[in-house]
Simulated assay, not measured.
Amino acid sequence: MRVPAKPPLEGLKRSLEKKRAKGERLPRDGFLRETFSLPRQEARAKAREWLERWPKQAYWTEIESWAERPGDMIEFTMRRLPSAD
């Protein structure tokens, strides 16, 4: 029995290189992330906005990390799945 030859991958390579050059990459885990640096009250409001717009039960939305910065600023990263499917 004859083993089929490998298909040419040049088209796929070019496509991947173009997307990478444009920065069109999702993290390997599939989550969308956005980092904010806001005053404490605005940071709370932004986190609530995310959790209301993309509920945790459907999108696995959460505050991935946060840190206090000088001047009562909070730097935090929110993450969620791109869709609820």
Rank of each mutant, 00 (worst) to 15 (best):
D85H: 11
R40V: 10
L32F: 05
P82W: 02
M1P: 13
P70N: 07
L32D: 04
R48M: 15
R44T: 09
I74Y: 03
S15H: 09
A67N: 10
P39Y: 05
G23D: 02
I63R: 03
R20K: 14
F36A: 03
D29R: 00
I74L: 12
R53M: 13
M1T: 05
P4F: 11
L16V: 11
K13F: 12
K56W: 14
L51N: 08
P27K: 06
G30L: 04
E42Q: 13
T61Y: 01
E68L: 15
R48S: 15
E62T: 00
R2F: 15
R69A: 14
E52G: 05
R20H: 12
P7I: 01
A45L: 06
K19T: 03
P82K: 00
F36L: 04
Y59G: 05
R25Y: 14
G71A: 02
A21D: 09
M73T: 09
K46A: 13
E62R: 07
F76M: 06
M1N: 10
G30N: 03
A84I: 00
P4W: 09
K56R: 14
S83T: 10
R14G: 05
K46L: 10
K22P: 03
E62Y: 03
L81D: 02
Q57F: 11
E68H: 05
E10Y: 07
G71R: 00
E62P: 01
E75S: 13
